[in-house]
């Protein structure tokens, strides 16, 4: 159950729609768990995920602490073509940021 080292994203054209799958590398600590030394692990979780297709913002996801570790999302984008650029940006509650992008295949 180790963390993957980096965010992963796949986008594939399937029967006229684009299927996007995203796996973000993030521990998603709720702020309620304790470590081996019995001290609370401070909350650290992704709050905001946005998805762009080329220059158009298509999806916003707001997460709470109940989103699983290494957040995974899969969704469809209507239409699209090979070569479209899909970009994901995320921000967590401490202000850490990440960007990952891929080209539709």
């Amino acid at each position: 159950m180790g963390l993957p080292r980096k965010d992963r994203i796949r986008a594939k054209l399937k029967s006229e729609n684009t299927t996007v799958r995203v796996l973000l590398a993030h521990p998603m600590h709720t702020g309620r768990a304790k470590d081996e030394a019995d001290t609370l692990i401070p909350a650290e979780f992704i709050q905001d995920i946005r998805c762009w297709r080329n220059d158009e913002e298509v999806l916003t996801i707001k997460c709470g602490t109940a989103t699983a570790r290494n957040p995974y999302f899969s969704f469809q984008l209507v239409g699209g073509k090979q070569g479209d650029m899909i970009t994901i940006r995320w921000v967590d509650n401490r202000g850490a940021k990440g960007t990952t992008e891929t080209v539709v295949k």
Partner: peptide, 22 residues
Amino acid sequence: FPLAMSLELTPAVSLPIKSMIK
């Protein structure tokens, strides 16, 4: 805290949507 996630969709997004929760 019951709310796990909230997604704001534009017409460019279609279902199904899959994810994982705790």
